[in-house]
Amino acid sequence: MTTLNQYLIVSALLFAVGLAGALTRRNAILVLVGIELMLNAANLNFIAFWRFGPNPELLRGVMFVVFSIGIAAAEAAVGLALIIAVYRHYKTTDLNRMDTLKG
């Protein structure tokens, strides 16, 4: 029988992998992909707590995930539009070369 802790460990590892991706990759699109991975790890946590927590019939965890998926879709669309706008201006998506605000 699987337990809550197993799911939490999987989600912790997934979050760590997403964080590593967001920190190491220099392409703005792949940084967004890392952020998506972290969001998914959070969703997995919500569902695991819903499934193993008290009062599953109230559907609180599921509601959180429904809204979080909706917001993630909006976030991805806005983020990618920003990347396109930045690419028009700098002709690159390399985050190291967008250094106009650097002091």
Binding site: N5, L8, I9, A12, A16, L19, A20, L23, F52
Partner: peptide, 21 residues
């Protein structure tokens, strides 16, 4: 960063009871 985050989460989880009250 992977190591630190995972160790942090693991430490937080090890203190958890097996079942949620």
């Amino acid at each position: 960063s992977v190591g630190v985050v995972f160790v942090l989460f693991n430490r937080a989880l090890s203190g958890l009871p097996a079942k949620v009250p």
